[in-house]
Nucleic acid binder design. Structure first.
Lengths: 212, 212
DNA sequence: ATACTATACGAACGGTCGTATTATTAGTTT
DNA sequence: AAACTAATAATACGACCGTTCGTATAGTAT
Protein backbone atom coordinates (compact mmCIF):
# COMPACT_ATOMS: atom_id res chain seq x y z
CA UNK A 1 0.00 0.00 0.00
CA UNK A 2 2.40 2.67 -1.13
CA UNK A 3 0.78 5.98 -0.39
CA UNK A 4 1.59 7.89 -3.54
CA UNK A 5 0.86 11.49 -2.74
CA UNK A 6 -0.09 14.15 -5.20
CA UNK A 7 3.03 16.23 -5.70
CA UNK A 8 1.03 19.42 -5.95
CA UNK A 9 -0.62 18.87 -2.59
CA UNK A 10 2.73 17.97 -1.11
CA UNK A 11 4.22 21.19 -2.35
CA UNK A 12 1.35 23.21 -0.90
CA UNK A 13 1.70 21.41 2.39
CA UNK A 14 5.36 22.25 2.59
CA UNK A 15 4.69 25.91 1.92
CA UNK A 16 1.93 25.97 4.47
CA UNK A 17 4.16 24.34 7.01
CA UNK A 18 6.98 26.82 6.37
CA UNK A 19 4.58 29.71 6.69
CA UNK A 20 3.17 28.54 10.00
CA UNK A 21 6.58 27.73 11.37
CA UNK A 22 7.62 31.31 10.80
CA UNK A 23 4.25 32.68 11.83
CA UNK A 24 4.34 31.31 15.36
CA UNK A 25 7.72 32.92 15.94
CA UNK A 26 6.60 36.32 14.69
CA UNK A 27 3.39 36.13 16.69
CA UNK A 28 5.18 35.17 19.90
CA UNK A 29 7.30 38.31 19.65
CA UNK A 30 5.12 40.90 17.93
CA UNK A 31 1.65 39.46 18.38
CA UNK A 32 -1.00 37.91 16.19
CA UNK A 33 -2.06 41.29 14.87
CA UNK A 34 1.43 42.26 13.72
CA UNK A 35 1.53 38.97 11.88
CA UNK A 36 1.02 40.55 8.46
CA UNK A 37 0.71 38.67 5.23
CA UNK A 38 3.11 40.96 3.40
CA UNK A 39 5.77 40.57 6.03
CA UNK A 40 5.47 36.79 6.06
CA UNK A 41 5.71 36.67 2.28
CA UNK A 42 8.77 38.89 2.22
CA UNK A 43 10.56 36.88 4.90
CA UNK A 44 9.84 33.60 3.14
CA UNK A 45 10.46 35.04 -0.32
CA UNK A 46 7.15 33.94 -1.74
CA UNK A 47 4.36 36.02 -3.19
CA UNK A 48 1.86 37.74 -0.98
CA UNK A 49 -1.09 36.50 -2.99
CA UNK A 50 0.18 32.93 -3.07
CA UNK A 51 0.54 32.93 0.67
CA UNK A 52 -2.85 34.52 1.12
CA UNK A 53 -4.51 31.81 -0.97
CA UNK A 54 -3.51 29.22 1.60
CA UNK A 55 -5.63 30.78 4.30
CA UNK A 56 -8.26 32.92 2.59
CA UNK A 57 -8.28 35.62 5.24
CA UNK A 58 -6.20 37.18 7.93
CA UNK A 59 -8.27 35.69 10.69
CA UNK A 60 -7.92 32.20 9.26
CA UNK A 61 -4.17 32.68 9.18
CA UNK A 62 -4.28 33.66 12.82
CA UNK A 63 -6.37 30.64 13.75
CA UNK A 64 -4.04 28.34 11.83
CA UNK A 65 -1.09 29.91 13.63
CA UNK A 66 -2.69 29.23 17.01
CA UNK A 67 -3.30 25.61 16.04
CA UNK A 68 0.31 25.28 14.93
CA UNK A 69 1.49 26.74 18.22
CA UNK A 70 -0.70 24.29 20.07
CA UNK A 71 1.01 21.39 18.32
CA UNK A 72 4.44 22.68 19.26
CA UNK A 73 3.26 23.24 22.82
CA UNK A 74 1.95 19.68 23.03
CA UNK A 75 5.33 18.30 22.06
CA UNK A 76 7.39 20.63 24.22
CA UNK A 77 5.32 20.69 27.39
CA UNK A 78 2.61 18.06 27.52
CA UNK A 79 4.25 14.97 26.06
CA UNK A 80 7.33 14.98 28.32
CA UNK A 81 5.05 15.14 31.35
CA UNK A 82 2.78 12.35 30.10
CA UNK A 83 5.87 10.16 29.80
CA UNK A 84 6.09 10.21 33.59
CA UNK A 85 3.69 7.95 35.56
CA UNK A 86 0.62 9.70 37.03
CA UNK A 87 0.89 11.18 40.49
CA UNK A 88 2.89 13.88 42.17
CA UNK A 89 5.85 13.02 39.95
CA UNK A 90 3.90 13.82 36.81
CA UNK A 91 2.62 17.06 38.29
CA UNK A 92 6.17 18.07 39.05
CA UNK A 93 7.30 17.01 35.59
CA UNK A 94 4.58 19.15 34.07
CA UNK A 95 5.72 22.17 36.03
CA UNK A 96 9.30 21.47 35.18
CA UNK A 97 8.72 21.08 31.47
CA UNK A 98 6.65 24.25 31.38
CA UNK A 99 9.35 26.34 32.97
CA UNK A 100 11.87 24.75 30.66
CA UNK A 101 9.65 25.49 27.66
CA UNK A 102 9.57 29.15 28.58
CA UNK A 103 13.24 29.35 29.52
CA UNK A 104 14.42 27.57 26.36
CA UNK A 105 12.40 30.01 24.29
CA UNK A 106 10.68 27.36 22.25
CA UNK A 107 8.99 30.47 20.93
CA UNK A 108 11.41 33.38 20.77
CA UNK A 109 8.97 35.73 22.50
CA UNK A 110 8.40 33.42 25.46
CA UNK A 111 5.13 31.56 25.88
CA UNK A 112 3.07 31.95 22.72
CA UNK A 113 -0.21 31.56 24.56
CA UNK A 114 0.56 34.02 27.33
CA UNK A 115 1.24 36.60 24.66
CA UNK A 116 -1.71 35.83 22.40
CA UNK A 117 -4.16 35.44 25.25
CA UNK A 118 -3.36 38.87 26.60
CA UNK A 119 -3.59 40.33 23.12
CA UNK A 120 -7.09 38.99 22.50
CA UNK A 121 -8.34 38.59 26.05
CA UNK A 122 -10.56 41.67 25.91
CA UNK A 123 -11.53 41.45 22.23
CA UNK A 124 -14.44 39.28 21.11
CA UNK A 125 -14.17 37.09 18.04
CA UNK A 126 -12.96 33.76 16.77
CA UNK A 127 -9.38 34.33 17.89
CA UNK A 128 -10.46 35.08 21.43
CA UNK A 129 -12.67 32.00 21.49
CA UNK A 130 -10.01 29.64 20.22
CA UNK A 131 -7.51 30.96 22.73
CA UNK A 132 -10.02 30.66 25.54
CA UNK A 133 -10.66 27.05 24.55
CA UNK A 134 -6.94 26.31 24.51
CA UNK A 135 -6.60 27.87 27.93
CA UNK A 136 -9.47 25.81 29.30
CA UNK A 137 -7.91 22.69 27.83
CA UNK A 138 -4.60 23.47 29.47
CA UNK A 139 -6.10 24.14 32.89
CA UNK A 140 -8.09 20.93 32.59
CA UNK A 141 -4.89 19.02 32.02
CA UNK A 142 -3.32 20.46 35.17
CA UNK A 143 -6.45 19.76 37.18
CA UNK A 144 -6.65 16.21 35.93
CA UNK A 145 -3.02 15.62 36.82
CA UNK A 146 -3.73 16.90 40.32
CA UNK A 147 -6.81 14.72 40.64
CA UNK A 148 -4.86 11.62 39.66
CA UNK A 149 -2.25 12.41 42.28
CA UNK A 150 -5.06 12.81 44.78
CA UNK A 151 -6.63 9.48 43.86
CA UNK A 152 -3.26 7.83 44.30
CA UNK A 153 -3.12 9.21 47.82
CA UNK A 154 -0.10 11.36 47.13
CA UNK A 155 -1.74 14.74 47.36
CA UNK A 156 -4.55 16.50 49.16
CA UNK A 157 -5.71 19.66 47.46
CA UNK A 158 -8.62 21.24 45.65
CA UNK A 159 -7.62 20.59 42.02
CA UNK A 160 -9.11 23.81 40.66
CA UNK A 161 -7.45 25.91 43.33
CA UNK A 162 -4.05 24.30 43.06
CA UNK A 163 -4.17 24.41 39.25
CA UNK A 164 -4.88 28.12 39.42
CA UNK A 165 -1.88 28.68 41.64
CA UNK A 166 0.57 26.59 39.68
CA UNK A 167 -0.49 28.16 36.41
CA UNK A 168 -0.09 31.59 37.98
CA UNK A 169 3.49 30.77 38.90
CA UNK A 170 4.24 29.57 35.36
CA UNK A 171 2.92 32.66 33.65
CA UNK A 172 4.44 35.05 36.12
CA UNK A 173 7.89 33.53 35.71
CA UNK A 174 7.53 33.76 31.94
CA UNK A 175 6.64 37.42 32.02
CA UNK A 176 9.25 38.37 34.59
CA UNK A 177 11.91 36.67 32.51
CA UNK A 178 10.91 38.75 29.50
CA UNK A 179 11.06 41.98 31.43
CA UNK A 180 14.36 41.34 33.12
CA UNK A 181 16.24 40.20 30.06
CA UNK A 182 16.81 36.49 30.37
CA UNK A 183 17.31 36.51 34.09
CA UNK A 184 17.20 32.83 34.91
CA UNK A 185 16.74 33.60 38.58
CA UNK A 186 13.01 34.09 38.14
CA UNK A 187 12.64 30.51 36.98
CA UNK A 188 14.38 29.30 40.12
CA UNK A 189 12.11 31.53 42.13
CA UNK A 190 9.05 30.02 40.48
CA UNK A 191 10.40 26.52 40.91
CA UNK A 192 10.86 27.20 44.59
CA UNK A 193 7.31 28.47 44.99
CA UNK A 194 5.97 25.42 43.22
CA UNK A 195 8.04 23.04 45.30
CA UNK A 196 6.97 24.58 48.60
CA UNK A 197 3.34 24.59 47.51
CA UNK A 198 3.45 20.94 46.49
CA UNK A 199 5.26 19.97 49.69
CA UNK A 200 2.43 21.53 51.65
CA UNK A 201 -0.13 19.53 49.70
CA UNK A 202 1.78 16.24 49.59
CA UNK A 203 0.62 13.53 51.94
CA UNK A 204 3.08 12.18 54.49
CA UNK A 205 5.24 9.39 53.15
CA UNK A 206 4.96 10.40 49.51
CA UNK A 207 8.38 10.48 47.88
CA UNK A 208 9.07 13.99 46.69
CA UNK A 209 10.14 13.96 43.05
CA UNK A 210 12.58 16.86 43.35
CA UNK A 211 14.66 14.93 45.84
CA UNK A 212 16.83 12.30 44.23
CA UNK B 1 -0.76 85.30 44.33
CA UNK B 2 -3.50 84.47 41.92
CA UNK B 3 -2.13 81.97 39.46
CA UNK B 4 -3.52 83.36 36.23
CA UNK B 5 -3.04 80.66 33.71
CA UNK B 6 -2.57 81.18 30.02
CA UNK B 7 -5.84 80.21 28.40
CA UNK B 8 -4.06 78.70 25.42
CA UNK B 9 -2.00 76.39 27.60
CA UNK B 10 -5.11 75.50 29.52
CA UNK B 11 -6.88 74.57 26.35
CA UNK B 12 -3.96 72.45 25.23
CA UNK B 13 -3.83 70.76 28.58
CA UNK B 14 -7.48 69.86 28.40
CA UNK B 15 -7.07 68.39 24.96
CA UNK B 16 -4.05 66.44 26.07
CA UNK B 17 -5.91 65.15 29.06
CA UNK B 18 -8.89 64.10 26.96
CA UNK B 19 -6.62 62.33 24.50
CA UNK B 20 -4.81 60.36 27.19
CA UNK B 21 -8.01 59.52 28.99
CA UNK B 22 -9.29 57.88 25.84
CA UNK B 23 -5.90 56.45 24.94
CA UNK B 24 -5.53 54.35 28.07
CA UNK B 25 -8.91 52.76 27.44
CA UNK B 26 -8.11 51.89 23.84
CA UNK B 27 -4.71 50.55 24.79
CA UNK B 28 -6.08 48.38 27.56
CA UNK B 29 -8.38 46.66 25.09
CA UNK B 30 -6.53 46.72 21.76
CA UNK B 31 -2.97 47.36 22.85
CA UNK B 32 -0.49 50.19 22.61
CA UNK B 33 0.24 49.39 18.97
CA UNK B 34 -3.39 49.60 17.90
CA UNK B 35 -3.49 52.98 19.56
CA UNK B 36 -3.42 54.92 16.30
CA UNK B 37 -3.36 58.67 15.95
CA UNK B 38 -6.03 58.70 13.28
CA UNK B 39 -8.40 56.63 15.33
CA UNK B 40 -7.92 58.76 18.41
CA UNK B 41 -8.54 61.94 16.43
CA UNK B 42 -11.70 60.54 14.87
CA UNK B 43 -13.10 59.37 18.20
CA UNK B 44 -12.43 62.73 19.85
CA UNK B 45 -13.46 64.71 16.77
CA UNK B 46 -10.27 66.69 16.53
CA UNK B 47 -7.77 66.88 13.71
CA UNK B 48 -5.15 64.22 13.31
CA UNK B 49 -2.37 66.75 12.89
CA UNK B 50 -3.47 68.76 15.90
CA UNK B 51 -3.42 65.68 18.05
CA UNK B 52 -0.10 64.61 16.63
CA UNK B 53 1.47 67.97 17.52
CA UNK B 54 0.88 67.25 21.19
CA UNK B 55 3.20 64.27 21.20
CA UNK B 56 5.50 64.60 18.21
CA UNK B 57 5.69 60.90 17.52
CA UNK B 58 3.84 57.68 17.98
CA UNK B 59 6.27 56.39 20.56
CA UNK B 60 5.92 59.56 22.65
CA UNK B 61 2.17 59.10 22.58
CA UNK B 62 2.63 55.56 23.84
CA UNK B 63 4.97 56.66 26.61
CA UNK B 64 2.57 59.43 27.66
CA UNK B 65 -0.25 56.88 27.69
CA UNK B 66 1.73 54.60 29.98
CA UNK B 67 2.43 57.50 32.34
CA UNK B 68 -1.26 58.39 32.36
CA UNK B 69 -2.15 54.79 33.15
CA UNK B 70 0.36 54.81 35.97
CA UNK B 71 -1.39 57.81 37.54
CA UNK B 72 -4.76 56.10 37.37
CA UNK B 73 -3.22 52.93 38.79
CA UNK B 74 -1.70 54.87 41.69
CA UNK B 75 -5.09 56.27 42.64
CA UNK B 76 -7.03 53.05 42.16
CA UNK B 77 -4.63 50.54 43.69
CA UNK B 78 -1.78 52.10 45.63
CA UNK B 79 -3.41 54.97 47.50
CA UNK B 80 -6.22 52.95 49.11
CA UNK B 81 -3.63 50.51 50.45
CA UNK B 82 -1.36 53.25 51.78
CA UNK B 83 -4.33 54.58 53.72
CA UNK B 84 -4.14 51.44 55.85
CA UNK B 85 -1.43 51.26 58.56
CA UNK B 86 1.69 49.24 57.63
CA UNK B 87 1.72 45.55 58.39
CA UNK B 88 -0.24 42.52 57.36
CA UNK B 89 -3.36 44.65 57.14
CA UNK B 90 -1.82 46.86 54.50
CA UNK B 91 -0.58 43.87 52.54
CA UNK B 92 -4.07 42.45 52.52
CA UNK B 93 -5.51 45.83 51.55
CA UNK B 94 -3.09 46.02 48.65
CA UNK B 95 -4.18 42.60 47.41
CA UNK B 96 -7.79 43.52 47.88
CA UNK B 97 -7.60 46.80 46.03
CA UNK B 98 -5.71 45.18 43.18
CA UNK B 99 -8.35 42.52 42.65
CA UNK B 100 -11.00 45.19 42.91
CA UNK B 101 -9.16 47.33 40.37
CA UNK B 102 -9.19 44.49 37.90
CA UNK B 103 -12.75 43.41 38.64
CA UNK B 104 -14.15 46.95 38.46
CA UNK B 105 -12.51 47.33 35.06
CA UNK B 106 -10.87 50.62 35.88
CA UNK B 107 -9.50 50.01 32.41
CA UNK B 108 -12.07 48.34 30.18
CA UNK B 109 -9.60 45.73 29.01
CA UNK B 110 -8.59 44.67 32.50
CA UNK B 111 -5.20 45.56 33.93
CA UNK B 112 -3.51 48.03 31.59
CA UNK B 113 -0.04 46.93 32.60
CA UNK B 114 -0.65 43.22 32.23
CA UNK B 115 -1.75 43.89 28.68
CA UNK B 116 0.99 46.34 27.72
CA UNK B 117 3.73 44.37 29.39
CA UNK B 118 2.89 41.26 27.44
CA UNK B 119 2.68 43.28 24.25
CA UNK B 120 6.16 44.75 24.63
CA UNK B 121 7.81 42.15 26.80
CA UNK B 122 9.83 40.63 23.97
CA UNK B 123 10.43 43.81 21.98
CA UNK B 124 13.31 46.15 22.82
CA UNK B 125 12.82 49.91 22.93
CA UNK B 126 11.66 52.78 25.07
CA UNK B 127 8.19 51.34 25.60
CA UNK B 128 9.61 48.07 26.86
CA UNK B 129 11.97 49.90 29.19
CA UNK B 130 9.33 52.15 30.69
CA UNK B 131 7.04 49.19 31.29
CA UNK B 132 9.87 47.21 32.85
CA UNK B 133 10.59 50.12 35.18
CA UNK B 134 6.93 50.37 36.14
CA UNK B 135 6.87 46.65 36.86
CA UNK B 136 9.99 46.89 39.01
CA UNK B 137 8.44 49.79 40.89
CA UNK B 138 5.28 47.81 41.54
CA UNK B 139 7.10 44.71 42.75
CA UNK B 140 9.24 46.91 45.00
CA UNK B 141 6.10 48.29 46.58
CA UNK B 142 4.80 44.81 47.36
CA UNK B 143 8.16 43.74 48.73
CA UNK B 144 8.42 46.82 50.90
CA UNK B 145 4.95 46.22 52.27
CA UNK B 146 5.96 42.67 53.13
CA UNK B 147 9.18 43.84 54.76
CA UNK B 148 7.31 46.29 56.96
CA UNK B 149 4.97 43.56 58.08
CA UNK B 150 8.01 41.44 58.87
CA UNK B 151 9.65 44.20 60.91
CA UNK B 152 6.44 44.58 62.87
CA UNK B 153 6.61 40.90 63.73
CA UNK B 154 3.41 40.05 61.92
CA UNK B 155 4.87 38.04 59.09
CA UNK B 156 7.75 35.72 58.36
CA UNK B 157 8.54 35.36 54.69
CA UNK B 158 11.15 36.09 52.06
CA UNK B 159 9.81 39.39 50.64
CA UNK B 160 10.95 38.73 47.10
CA UNK B 161 9.48 35.25 47.06
CA UNK B 162 6.16 36.20 48.59
CA UNK B 163 5.86 39.25 46.33
CA UNK B 164 6.38 37.03 43.31
CA UNK B 165 3.60 34.71 44.43
CA UNK B 166 1.08 37.39 45.30
CA UNK B 167 1.70 39.22 42.05
CA UNK B 168 1.29 35.95 40.17
CA UNK B 169 -2.13 35.48 41.75
CA UNK B 170 -3.19 38.99 40.82
CA UNK B 171 -2.24 38.70 37.18
CA UNK B 172 -3.62 35.24 36.79
CA UNK B 173 -7.00 36.25 38.15
CA UNK B 174 -7.06 39.21 35.80
CA UNK B 175 -6.37 37.09 32.74
CA UNK B 176 -8.75 34.32 33.70
CA UNK B 177 -11.51 36.84 34.21
CA UNK B 178 -10.95 38.18 30.71
CA UNK B 179 -11.09 34.73 29.15
CA UNK B 180 -14.15 33.54 30.99
CA UNK B 181 -16.28 36.59 30.39
CA UNK B 182 -16.60 38.42 33.66
CA UNK B 183 -16.68 35.33 35.82
CA UNK B 184 -16.29 36.80 39.29
CA UNK B 185 -15.48 33.37 40.68
CA UNK B 186 -11.85 33.65 39.62
CA UNK B 187 -11.42 36.68 41.86
CA UNK B 188 -12.73 34.71 44.79
CA UNK B 189 -10.39 31.91 43.87
CA UNK B 190 -7.44 34.30 43.84
CA UNK B 191 -8.53 35.88 47.10
CA UNK B 192 -8.64 32.45 48.68
CA UNK B 193 -5.14 31.59 47.46
CA UNK B 194 -3.83 34.86 48.83
CA UNK B 195 -5.53 34.40 52.18
CA UNK B 196 -4.19 30.89 52.66
CA UNK B 197 -0.72 31.98 51.65
CA UNK B 198 -0.74 34.90 54.09
CA UNK B 199 -2.11 32.74 56.88
CA UNK B 200 0.82 30.40 56.40
CA UNK B 201 3.25 33.28 56.65
CA UNK B 202 1.54 35.14 59.50
CA UNK B 203 3.09 34.83 62.93
CA UNK B 204 1.02 33.39 65.73
CA UNK B 205 -1.11 35.96 67.50
CA UNK B 206 -1.29 38.37 64.59
CA UNK B 207 -4.87 39.47 63.97
CA UNK B 208 -5.90 38.39 60.48
CA UNK B 209 -7.35 41.33 58.57
CA UNK B 210 -9.91 39.29 56.65
CA UNK B 211 -11.60 38.23 59.88
CA UNK B 212 -13.82 40.89 61.33
C1' DA C 1 -0.93 15.34 -26.86
C1' DT C 2 -5.20 17.03 -24.17
C1' DA C 3 -7.94 18.35 -20.48
C1' DC C 4 -7.92 19.23 -15.79
C1' DT C 5 -6.36 20.77 -11.11
C1' DA C 6 -3.58 22.81 -7.44
C1' DT C 7 -0.27 26.13 -6.40
C1' DA C 8 2.10 30.38 -7.10
C1' DC C 9 2.57 34.86 -9.17
C1' DG C 10 2.26 40.17 -10.41
C1' DA C 11 -0.38 44.00 -10.41
C1' DA C 12 -3.83 46.72 -8.64
C1' DC C 13 -7.66 48.29 -5.29
C1' DG C 14 -9.31 51.27 -1.46
C1' DG C 15 -7.76 52.28 3.25
C1' DT C 16 -5.06 53.42 7.10
C1' DC C 17 -0.73 54.17 9.04
C1' DG C 18 2.95 57.78 10.98
C1' DT C 19 4.86 62.00 9.73
C1' DA C 20 6.05 66.73 7.62
C1' DT C 21 4.76 71.20 5.82
C1' DT C 22 2.01 75.05 5.65
C1' DA C 23 -1.90 77.79 7.10
C1' DT C 24 -5.45 79.38 10.41
C1' DT C 25 -7.48 80.48 14.67
C1' DA C 26 -7.61 81.72 19.62
C1' DG C 27 -5.50 84.06 23.44
C1' DT C 28 -1.85 87.14 25.54
C1' DT C 29 1.08 91.02 25.68
C1' DT C 30 2.44 95.59 24.50
C1' DA D 1 -4.80 97.99 17.21
C1' DA D 2 -0.40 95.40 16.36
C1' DA D 3 2.86 91.97 17.37
C1' DC D 4 3.58 87.72 19.21
C1' DT D 5 2.68 82.94 20.77
C1' DA D 6 0.43 78.53 21.39
C1' DA D 7 -2.98 75.31 19.81
C1' DT D 8 -5.46 73.47 16.03
C1' DA D 9 -6.37 72.48 11.31
C1' DA D 10 -5.81 71.26 6.19
C1' DT D 11 -3.33 68.89 2.93
C1' DA D 12 -0.08 65.82 1.20
C1' DC D 13 3.43 62.07 1.29
C1' DG D 14 5.25 57.31 0.87
C1' DA D 15 4.70 52.84 3.05
C1' DC D 16 2.12 49.12 4.21
C1' DC D 17 -2.33 46.84 5.10
C1' DG D 18 -5.85 42.86 3.64
C1' DT D 19 -8.01 41.50 -0.39
C1' DT D 20 -9.26 40.58 -5.38
C1' DC D 21 -8.35 39.41 -10.13
C1' DG D 22 -6.38 37.42 -14.12
C1' DT D 23 -2.59 34.58 -15.48
C1' DA D 24 1.25 31.40 -15.56
C1' DT D 25 3.33 27.12 -14.02
C1' DA D 26 3.81 22.47 -12.33
C1' DG D 27 1.85 17.97 -11.65
C1' DT D 28 -1.94 14.42 -12.68
C1' DA D 29 -5.15 11.99 -15.35
C1' DT D 30 -7.18 10.57 -19.89
Amino acid sequence: MEARIDGRLRRGDQTRRAVLKHAVDIASVDGLEALSIGRLAKDLEISKSGLFAHFGSKVELQLATIRAARRIYAVAVVEPALAVPPGLGRLWALSDSWLDYSKRRVFPGGCFFAKATHEYGARPGQVHDLLAAANREWLDLIEQTIEEAGELGELEADPSQLAFELNAFYDSANMASLLRDNDDAVYEQARHSIRVRLEAAAKAGTPLPWIG
